[in-house]
Computed example of a mutant assay.
Amino acid sequence: MRVRIDLAYVLKRFAGRIAVTWAIVLMENGLLALVPLSVGMTIDGLLAGRVQELGWLVAILITLGCVAVGRRFYDTRVYGTIRLRLGSELQRRNSALNVSKHSVRIDMSRELVDFLEIQVPELMTAVVQIGFSLVVLTWFDVRLGLSCALVVTGMLLVYACFHRTFYRFNGLLNDQKERQIDVLAAGGRRGVFRHLRTLRRHEVTISDTEAVLYGGIFLLQIAFVAFNLLQGSRIDGVSAGQFFSIATYSWDYVEAALLLPIALQSWSRLSEICHRLNGPEDCAPAPASQLPSQP
């Protein structure tokens, strides 16, 4: 029985290494989420003649820098090994395909790993920032927390209207990419031009759809920030440092929330890619061994 290649497959084969990278990502984002609150406390402390809060802020920033640098050294090696092993597996599995499709599908398989290396940490950043911002803003005022919940709900509803559209447009783009080597091998200038023009048309269509989606979402975020600033200024006894924290966490919330549709859009594209990698047309015999988990 042929093993299906998808994100779950890669996660299972490299569970230990990926778990380490994600644990470091969570540590990095936990420290990052503390920065605006620490800055606000430092402002109030310095205005009151204290430097203790400044010392804590410096310690957090130094630790954050060390964790971030270390994670990037480790990530590069782990995900490079995964790309190597996954590409080798597809080479064995897709040997019956023509060269054009074979080449493009190896490139597509790398997008699975790119998602784990880039989009998943960004999504984790978004979740940590959203969760931490929600807690802090609710602590300042319940109405600030309620506005957070409403804007994320509205944003996800907007994206839900675009999921099938992104899936279909990415399918058309991938269909055209799979013809590229055959078109180049044919050698006709007109054929190459038509191929590149078709690629451009699909890419423009996807980009235009993204622009409409993000434009709608950004309007929600503008209303959210304006409401939080107005409401924060009306809190009784709010200090300069507390108002700074409210403003900063509100903007951090916006930036984090905007990462969610980006990750969801990547998921739409990967869904189409996984369907293509495991489609009936690539039915080479099942490999004798599964993807190895050791380099």
Score class of each variant (00 low, 15 high):
residue 131 G to R: 08
residue 182 D to E: 01
residue 179 R to H: 09
residue 148 C to A: 05
residue 149 A to R: 10
residue 195 H to Q: 08
residue 147 S to K: 08
residue 135 V to H: 15
residue 120 V to I: 01
residue 169 F to A: 12
residue 168 R to S: 09
residue 135 V to L: 11
residue 154 G to Y: 09
residue 203 E to D: 13
residue 166 F to P: 03
residue 111 E to K: 15
residue 154 G to A: 04
residue 168 R to Y: 13
residue 168 R to F: 12
residue 200 R to E: 11
residue 119 Q to T: 15
residue 125 T to P: 06
residue 191 G to N: 05
residue 143 R to N: 13
residue 111 E to W: 11
residue 130 I to W: 06
residue 175 D to E: 10
residue 149 A to P: 10
residue 155 M to A: 06
residue 202 H to A: 13
residue 192 V to K: 01
residue 136 V to C: 04
residue 157 L to K: 10
residue 158 V to F: 00
residue 194 R to P: 13
residue 137 L to R: 01
residue 125 T to R: 11
residue 179 R to Q: 08
residue 189 R to C: 02
residue 142 V to Q: 10
residue 124 M to G: 03
residue 195 H to M: 05
residue 168 R to L: 07
residue 128 V to H: 01
residue 175 D to C: 10
residue 201 R to E: 11
residue 131 G to H: 04
residue 197 R to N: 15
residue 169 F to Y: 13
residue 184 L to W: 12
residue 138 T to D: 09
residue 147 S to M: 13
residue 186 A to N: 12
residue 169 F to S: 12
residue 158 V to G: 01
residue 140 F to K: 10
residue 152 V to S: 01
residue 147 S to L: 07
residue 179 R to M: 02
residue 124 M to I: 03
residue 191 G to K: 06
residue 159 Y to T: 00
residue 150 L to R: 05
residue 132 F to M: 04
residue 145 G to S: 03
residue 200 R to S: 13
residue 174 N to D: 07
residue 166 F to L: 10
residue 203 E to F: 15
residue 181 I to K: 01
residue 138 T to Y: 11
residue 181 I to Q: 08
residue 157 L to T: 11
residue 115 F to H: 00
residue 151 V to I: 09
residue 164 R to Q: 06
residue 203 E to G: 12
residue 127 V to P: 00
residue 149 A to C: 09
residue 142 V to G: 11
residue 184 L to M: 15
residue 191 G to R: 00
residue 133 S to G: 03
residue 112 L to V: 03
residue 177 K to R: 13
residue 153 T to Q: 14
residue 180 Q to G: 12
residue 116 L to G: 00
